[in-house]
């Protein structure tokens, strides 16, 4: 389940998730992990923190070592893992965040975005069951935010439970399956995002605003005299909903990427790429690509405007890509995938 904890500054988001890994101990009440109440002994806590990793907003607070690889190795070495395994984890986690070529660099020489990715790699190297990300996209430029969110989706697909804590309503709305809203230290809502955002007063009292897609949809539909549901969460879903039944829908040509970049057909239409492996391969081969980031959305938007497009993606993400596109069926026509 993709979970978001949302609330204004000072609503208690971080205080809450520091309870999840036992940094803070509740004055009253109990925290459960996997159905068992937390124990606050040294060993139990250490065990828990290997399973529940937190990536804080400001990477400078959690990078301690002087080189990238030392920092990524910090967690695993604390877990007394064997050297070969540590090496494997350094490589895989740095590869995932696209920082492998920086492994021997001093951390102080990295840019903010790079430091943020190293902090994430440090958490990934612990191979946690639950990953808590505090404002994962704050301070990142738009492309880098997209890249981080795509990585997060890959992790979810691989079975990691990801919890994002944020005040960014647009991010929360497009990504979350379930939201928990905090206001002044109280949990005021848990459930799917739509019912919460439909309640203007609650949203305002929580220090938040309605997500753009949500409010555009509600105004459009009330003016057209139609039902607000189903609620589109992305622009392509909104478009699918607004398109007429006889509108021409474009075709998405699907090309799974396995080992080598096969000839991308130079057909007319935009080319999008999805997945970290594909992105790396494309960067090396310098192929022409139109949508480096947010490509599924880009191709869907094209399809809604009646244009054909090509989508190249990591083969292991096949189901994720197809599912994402198929969601359009709830709102209108699904573009044909060939």
């Amino acid at each position: 389940m993709k979970t978001v904890i949302i609330g204004a500054n000072g609503a208690g988001k971080s205080t809450m998730f520091y309870h999840f890994n036992g940094i803070l101990k509740p004055k009253e009440g109990t925290v459960y992990y996997d159905g068992k109440p937390l124990e606050y002994t040294r060993d139990a806590l250490s065990d828990l923190r290997n399973k529940v990793s937190i990536v804080v907003q400001n990477p400078d607070e959690q990078i301690f070592s002087s080189t990238v690889e030392e920092d990524v190795a910090f967690g695993p070495l604390n877990m007394s893992i064997e050297r070969d395994e540590v090496e494997r984890r350094i490589v895989t986690s740095l590869e995932k965040v696209g920082m492998l070529e920086y492994r021997e660099r001093p951390t102080v020489k990295l840019s903010y975005g790079q430091r943020k990715r190293v902090a994430l790699a440090g958490a990934l190297a612990c191979e946690p069951e639950v990953l808590i990300l505090d404002e994962p996209t704050a301070g990142l430029d738009p492309q880098m935010s997209q890249e981080v969110m795509e990585l997060v989706n890959e992790l979810c697909l691989a079975g990691t439970t990801v919890i994002i804590s944020t005040h960014d309503v647009d991010l929360a709305y497009t990504w979350a399956e379930e939201i928990h809203v905090l206001r002044k230290g109280k949990l005021i809502y848990s459930g799917s995002p739509e019912p919460f955002f439909a309640n203007t007063e609650e949203v305002a009292l929580s220090g938040l605003v309605k997500p753009h897609t949500f409010s555009i949809n509600s105004t459009f539909e009330s003016l057209r005299g139609r039902d607000e549901a189903p609620y589109p969460r992305t622009n392509s879903q909104l478009l699918a909903k607004l398109s007429t039944p006889d509108a021409k829908i474009g075709v998405i040509r699907m090309i799974p990427f396995d080992k080598e970049i096969s000839e991308i057909p130079q057909v007319c239409g935009n080319i999008g790429i999805y997945g970290s492996r594909t992105r790396r391969a494309v960067r090396e081969s310098k192929t022409r690509v139109d949508y480096y980031f947010n490509a599924i959305e880009g191709c869907c938007l094209d399809a809604m405007s009646g244009l054909d497009s090509v989508l190249v993606y990591d083969i292991e993400l096949e189901s994720l890509v197809r599912d994402t596109i198929s969601v359009l069926g709830k709102f209108g026509k699904v573009p044909e995938m060939i």
Partner: peptide
């Protein structure tokens, strides 16, 4: 290193549609 703004994209595609 940026992305087109959401409003720009929606307008472009809606206008096209």
């Amino acid at each position: 290193g940026v992305m087109p703004p959401s409003m720009f994209t929606v307008n472009k595609n809606l206008a096209h549609m």
